[in-house]
Computed example of a mutant assay.
Amino acid sequence: MMSDQPNLVTTCTFKGKEYLVKMNIISGNSLEMSVTDKYTTEEWQCCYDANYIENITHKTGNFKQFDIFTTMLKSGLLKTSECVSLDLLTYDDLEMLRNRRMNGRNLCPSHSVHTNNVNSTSNRRYLILTYSVEFDRIHYPLPMEYCGPPDPQVLQGIIHRLEGEVERLQEQLKKQAEQYPTNNTSHISKLQKRIEDLSAENKTLSEDVRYLNKALSKHSNSMRHIGMMKGIVNSLQEQVIRDRMTSHRQIKRLQEEKAVLKQQHTSSETSCSKCSKDCFSISDSKCLLFTTKFSSLL
């Protein structure tokens, strides 16, 4: 099962279909991935450790360490490099690709493996990472198991977790408003950043619910359940917006207080400087008068 907060969430198009792709690196030595069809909401997942990934790259003849492979995978998802590309293939697509390569080597393609495993692999997908160098193309396949459409109960659990986060933030803001020090702008900035992250997470969840709503549109009971979840998500988003506006107002008030204090500090420094000059001037006058009287006595 994918972690609640993946390292990377993006949308990719494979063969004209849009997919929501989530990628998560766990403890620096394990890779989790999830691919969701945006139209049907069908989902495929995989979880592999560093040894498995490095073994796959070793079999291709172009070995890559785990961290390098995951960097290439991120580059393919974000399309930041022309050398790396991604594709999503079915088992039949993969067999056709293998047979084409075997025919190119004048080998006899085997169909027995396909016949024996067609039932167990018909719903499996393969995320193919292709690394193109000057004279060669290396394909790294990642098998992904079929999970079906997402469970509404799982989405509801995530919504409950987000509700708890919103309540906790609101409580923190309430306490902060009751006893608010003028030098605590860093804490408000952290709260504001957390609210923004929560809003982004809610947006992603709202998209998932919307696609799930399309897939279950023919079932009235599911429609009613999804409608309730969408209402909860919308309510959460409104709460996050209100909390963000409260933070902005508090930050603005802090900035105004800071400007007033700075102005008062400047005025105090000017007054002190003037008093100091006057004191020095009086002292000089008294010294001069004393010197004149002493000289006359002499």
Rank of each mutant, 00 (worst) to 15 (best):
N7C: 06
V9M: 14
T10Y: 02
T10A: 02
F14I: 08
G16A: 12
G16W: 04
K17S: 12
Y19I: 00
N24A: 14
I25M: 08
I26K: 12
I26P: 05
S27D: 13
L31W: 00
M33A: 06
M33G: 06
K38M: 09
K38Y: 00
Y39T: 14
T40P: 04
T41C: 02
W44C: 03
Y48C: 07
D49H: 06
A50I: 01
A50W: 02
N51Q: 13
N51Y: 10
N55Q: 13
I56Y: 01
F66S: 04
L77C: 09
L78M: 11
V84Q: 05
S85L: 09
L88W: 06
Y91T: 15
D92P: 00
L94W: 08
E95K: 15
L97P: 02
L97S: 11
R98M: 06
N99T: 08
R100T: 12
R101W: 08
N103K: 15
N106H: 11
C108Y: 08
P109M: 05
S110G: 10
V113K: 11
T115I: 07
N116D: 14
N117T: 15
S122V: 14
S122Q: 15
R124Q: 15
R124C: 10
L129M: 15
T130M: 10
T130E: 12
T130R: 14
Y131R: 06
Y131N: 00
D136P: 02
H139Y: 14
Y140R: 07
L142I: 13
L142W: 00
P143H: 08
P143E: 05
P143F: 06
Y146G: 07
Y146V: 07
P149S: 04
P150D: 03
P152E: 08
Q153N: 14
L155I: 10
G164E: 04
V166G: 05
E171K: 13
Q172C: 07
L173A: 00
K174I: 02
K175C: 08
P181W: 06
N183F: 03
I188L: 14
L191Q: 09
Q192V: 08
K193V: 10
R194K: 15
I195P: 01
E196Q: 06
D197A: 11
D197L: 14
A200Q: 14
N202E: 10
K203C: 09
S206E: 09
V209F: 03
Y211N: 02
K214G: 02
K218R: 04
N221I: 11
S222C: 08
M223C: 08
R224S: 05
M228P: 03
I232E: 13
I232Y: 15
I232H: 14
I232V: 13
Q237Y: 06
E238S: 04
Q239V: 06
V240F: 07
V240E: 13
R242N: 09
M245T: 15
H248T: 15
R249T: 07
R249W: 05
R249A: 07
Q250D: 01
I251S: 13
I251W: 03
I251Q: 09
K252N: 07
K252P: 05
L254A: 04
E256M: 07
E257M: 05
A259G: 00
A259T: 11
Q264V: 06
Q264F: 00
H265M: 01
H265K: 07
S268N: 06
E269T: 12
T270K: 11
K277R: 05
F280V: 03
I282N: 02
S283I: 14
L288D: 12
